[in-house]
Nucleic acid binder design. Sequence first.
DNA 1: CGCGGGGTTGAGGTCAATCAATCAATGTGG
DNA 2: CCACATTGATTGATTGACCTCAACCCCGCG
Lengths: 243, 243
Amino acid sequence: MAPSEVLIRKLQRISSLREPDLAVLRGIPIHEKEFQANQDLVLEGDRPSHSFVLVDGLVGSTKYTGDGKRQITSFFVTGDIPDLHGLHLPVMDCTFSTLTPSRVGFMRHDSLRAICDQHPRIAAAFWRSTLIDAAIYREWVTNVGRRDAFTRIAHILCELIYRLRAVGRIDDHIADIPITQAALGDAVGLSTVHVNRTLQELRHKGLIETSGAQTRVQNWPNLVRAGDFNPTYLHNRDPEVVV
Amino acid sequence: MAPSEVLIRKLQRISSLREPDLAVLRGIPIHEKEFQANQDLVLEGDRPSHSFVLVDGLVGSTKYTGDGKRQITSFFVTGDIPDLHGLHLPVMDCTFSTLTPSRVGFMRHDSLRAICDQHPRIAAAFWRSTLIDAAIYREWVTNVGRRDAFTRIAHILCELIYRLRAVGRIDDHIADIPITQAALGDAVGLSTVHVNRTLQELRHKGLIETSGAQTRVQNWPNLVRAGDFNPTYLHNRDPEVVV
DNA sequence: CGCGGGGTTGAGGTCAATCAATCAATGTGG
DNA sequence: CCACATTGATTGATTGACCTCAACCCCGCG
């Protein structure tokens, strides 16, 4: 799918833009590029002149502590604009890296700023996108701060699957999520070893099934319960997305 | 200080608004109200018609897990607009509560929306405010996910003191932060007991000194080092604020 | 003077980290 | 085609950071 089409669908999922505005969006110049897994797209400390929309793949915003430990602070899926905050915060406070092979569309800040000045509705839609990102960060603080390993991993799987479902990336209850257990650990603040054991527990309890990169949800209601997952914080406009 | 004055100072700290816009801001009707400590201002699930600026005191955004554990996901100080995201996300995904006695100024979403439609610069400034909040959430994910108890608490003290300093709430290296150790624990994902022991460690190492509600920084550079604290994520426009 | 909230202390328990192998899958050069 | 390297998953043993439970203390307050 064309990058601008992905962008428009995303904004339509989270706001109610109408035709004149959509036409403006279609006109945004987007420069598409492909990346392999584990490539840095924007680095902490950078002063980027572009933001990017994720066309396909999985991207993480990551931070490193002084002693080199890595924390992924959020995942981003198709349609998301992970570093849109760069539009108003000149220096990056985190790094964005691909977690799987990805296609990415770069948009000049110039263009985006001009559009936001002229079209308050579009500005509001972009703003809303960053607010949903913030809501996800809030949930992650809670997830990492107050839930045990089992619940924590179940929760993050629920979130990922729910979001992939919302963008049509789930076929027949199967999510294609080729991320390593190490990356999962960095997302939930656990060691690789413990992630491995917890995933086994999830499998033994009949909640998920994995084969290679694919994760199949065996029992969504139970996974939701196990993960203490309530999708309110994702602020989806659609009626309940059920997996 | 008048609520609108507090609001204007905040926006001036984070953006470069000029006079015509400032006049508009001065015209926002703000309804001021006082609260004691530990009062809920907005509840998760609410559909608020107002946002509020914190005129004085300390507010936390908090979430509760299914089994009732509490996580504070961010602190807010004078000038901050903690629930500004309510302007674009109709249903609240977290609760805002006072952590100390506070004065709060409520602003109608109607008015704010009208202003944002008419004045793109003001809209951008508000947007930027929410983006800085998001940057803080990101840092908290990292703090809770990847730092040990000692570093974690040192870090959060650094953040709090830095932010209080930026709004002129620090006199002579002394921060007046009358929050309980239980609240601190909820902010960093630790038990009250462990917070207590860690604070003792910070005192014994000569980093801080406490008497009642007051916290005095004994050695700011060492506290910064101990807390692995780098204020970039706070996106302060001023040159280095040194405590 | 008794009460309650918050701070402090000690003991014991547990969850998850660390260390160190092993294994499976894939790729690579000779 | 095979020896070898690499990456990620898995396993076991041990350690340790932090939690829980249960007191006790201190101080302001009705």
